[in-house]
Nucleic acid binder design. Sequence first.
DNA 1: CTGAAAGCGCTAACAG
DNA 2: CTGTTAGCGCTTTCAG
Lengths: 340, 340
Amino acid sequence: MPTIKDVAARAGVSTATVSRVLNGEKVKEETEKKVIAAIEALGYRPNHIARSLKTQKTQTIGFVVPDFGPFFMQVAEVVEDILNSYGYSLIVCNSNENPAREKERVRMLVEKQVDGLLVVPTSDTASHLREIQQDGTPVVLVDRMVKDMQVDCVLVDNVNGAYQAVEHLVTLGYRRIGLINGRLEVTTGEERYRGFLRVFEDYNLPVDEGLIRTGDFSTESGYTLMKELMGLPDPPPAVFVANYYMTIGAMLAINELGLKIPTDFALVGFDDMELTRLANPPLTAVVQPLQEMGEKAAELIYKRVGGDNTGFPQMYRLKPELVIRHSTSPFWKTKNLEVV
Amino acid sequence: MPTIKDVAARAGVSTATVSRVLNGEKVKEETEKKVIAAIEALGYRPNHIARSLKTQKTQTIGFVVPDFGPFFMQVAEVVEDILNSYGYSLIVCNSNENPAREKERVRMLVEKQVDGLLVVPTSDTASHLREIQQDGTPVVLVDRMVKDMQVDCVLVDNVNGAYQAVEHLVTLGYRRIGLINGRLEVTTGEERYRGFLRVFEDYNLPVDEGLIRTGDFSTESGYTLMKELMGLPDPPPAVFVANYYMTIGAMLAINELGLKIPTDFALVGFDDMELTRLANPPLTAVVQPLQEMGEKAAELIYKRVGGDNTGFPQMYRLKPELVIRHSTSPFWKTKNLEVV
DNA sequence: CTGAAAGCGCTAACAG
DNA sequence: CTGTTAGCGCTTTCAG
């Protein structure tokens, strides 16, 4: 591999001059030509490592996600595209929905000297993130927030998303509505729970605590909890599942039990991957703006690593949308006509 | 950030000594203690960039995948785990199933000085990969191979996978079998095509070229091609879809057309994500050993970056498995009882 | 407008 | 067993 020194020698200039043309600084046009010729002749490529050592910048952003599933990978994909277009590269790491492992991954990224960090926190306390931020690495939180930290974040309005879902069910005539939710220590779990409750409040309806289940966002827990709910002496005629993987698990359980939707009961899911549309019947679901989420996150971290701190701490609240398909129908149409 | 110099000063030793304890070389126990104390007191963390500049190693592996979907992300997940356990980190990049973009991503990784490269090639010619390999960066191909290149690779026995699927259909009594396949310039497409044909050969059956469709591995093309097949004057009573995304697309089309599986016709899909099990009915499908694929790829590249070239070029051929579920039933049971 | 020279933080001979 | 020293390849004052 040729170095800047070889280029300088070949062009008959100093390394400083080569460095200048490399960085687009002003040099005499003639000199520039010579340098460029030398670069091409030698097939020279700058050494990023050396550059980083000197400039203390790596042109790299880290992104810690809780899983490599379709939801976060779709946002990662748009983040990567945008960041690439700005000359940055992205390292995506998996925290496995595990705070200890998240800490580990974050540490690794910081040691790799990423210029900025995107993270989907796995718990609501994140002192390690605060420290990193204070040490000068911009951090932006994605999809979830943490307590006690001034930090940029791009979130979805989960209260509103859950609200729409449950309100839809109420409007259809359901009163006894089950909830399968994720951990309450993470924003999305907590907010969706609040959205659920708020509907009952606003409609002045009693909430049956016995119909609420809290899992860990995984397919397995969606499966188990749905079976639990259906195993109740008096199972709810409608269920809202507040996360994608749990929705998959719940459907698995339903299929196994041989229940028919929406005849036997109504289901509202979360997120809109192939599955939701392919299910039988296609699922009514709250869909989140993944594309926009990725865009906002990418643009924001880019701005921050560029030293622009306007609006800090910035908080985006993106709007989810309820897409009504065929897994919900009016209560009176279900077979289950018991009095509520 | 404290440097090795600060540590040396504080411990009253030279930077060389500090470097030695950092790298686990032998030093007097007492000296080691002093150094460690200084490191902890200062909260010192080695600077990877500086180290990389000196050693020409980054402890990083690049992985170029054609998409961020569940199939490749599942292998990426196991690769990351294993590599992390060896002290390496992984940068996953998306080539978007596009050769030009693949080249770009590979170049970026090489410029970032990854120690090794895992790639799922998007076409069967890959001169850029050969160059990189010759320049000394180990390359291992995953899931697909290329022509004219001596290179390690971990592949699935696709001929066999497709064979099992189609043979299953033949055994059930089907003769007119449709194929929805991916691009033939990529190994998986080409091999699955061969597997399909070989069944007809072995069973001495005529193949109807009019029932074969070639798409681009995407959900959209699976959808379009399935509709095309079903729009034929005499649509095939059984179809084998040779890739995950296309399977999704095909099912979407089937649902829209209101066709019933396996009563109206039989379907064998590829890969085994949630969808396959959740579909209605659960899909008979060829399932690939993702876990093993990730393990083999990770261990192999690790071995290579460690300078161990035994067995080069190594080729793994992992065995897929046909999982029979409910989307296929004997031909005589289908409504479509025309003579073949 | 360009060159000389001093590092960025670390490792690896080479000496002692 | 430990210290001295010379870089890795690049950027960036500071002079000229």
